[in-house]
Design a protein around this nucleic acid. Sequence first.
DNA 1: CTCAGTGTTCAGTG
DNA 2: TCACTGAACACTGA
Length: 275
Amino acid sequence: MPELPEVEAARTTAEHVAGGRRITAVWCAGDPIVLEASPARLRRALLDRRVRGVGRHGKHLWLELDGQPWLAVHFGMSGGLYTPGRGVRLRSSGTRDWGAGWPPRFTKLRLAFHDGGELAIADPRRLGRIRLRNDPRHELPISLLGFDALRELPPPRRFLALLGTRAAPIKALLLDQAFAAGVGNWVADEVLYQAGLDPRRPARALSPDDGRRLRAAIRAVLTTAVRAGADSRRYPKTWLFHHRWTRNTVTARGEPVRHDTVGGRTTAWVPAVQR
DNA sequence: CTCAGTGTTCAGTG
DNA sequence: TCACTGAACACTGA
């Protein structure tokens, strides 16, 4: 569930369910890897607190409470935020998501609110982290992140300057959270496809026009995915997204899709249009 | 049984 | 020190 659009959808859900409500029950799994704070400390920090709002930077999410510390969440590769009575969600691969039952399998933290609402954070693969922070935005690990790729995309000039010094493949730079926070593997591939850029090209070898197209594609992909509520069934038919999970396939326009490893990650791209 | 996988971190390299 | 690469982490499902 976890790139910027999915986390923004989780933020919206959390805002609707928890915003303005008081936490009346806290349930923690016995998982010291995902829960960086002890269950006792989490209970003490959360119980009877009111949720003032829900923030996001890149792939990180936090609940702003009426007292410190606040709850900060990173979903890792397989984590997600769920609430009861929401329709079955599909994962990108088309298999059923974990949100179907209640509470979901692999729930690590579950909150109940005074009006009867509930939230659960689940994480099968345990690469996510649930933490307590007094000021999440200015403390580790969020303090190390670059600009939020949706809300803080730098103006063209500054964006070009940021590319200019980096020798890494452009795909690797896009995945670097200290550069653009929130871009993950599928967003990076979609952006490079729409910008018409070969993922292996060194960032500093991009022309000013390449850089402008890249910036525009980041904005277009993220705003479209967020507007769709991160529901991949609603993404445009022309997107590479719908074909990246299948080997030896073609796009909606009949262009062959290739899979290579770039920046240490499986990369789907279309040599016919990416130069 | 094996392996890839919407992510991050850290050791190792040049 | 810097910039970058690749393995490790942990677990499910194809």
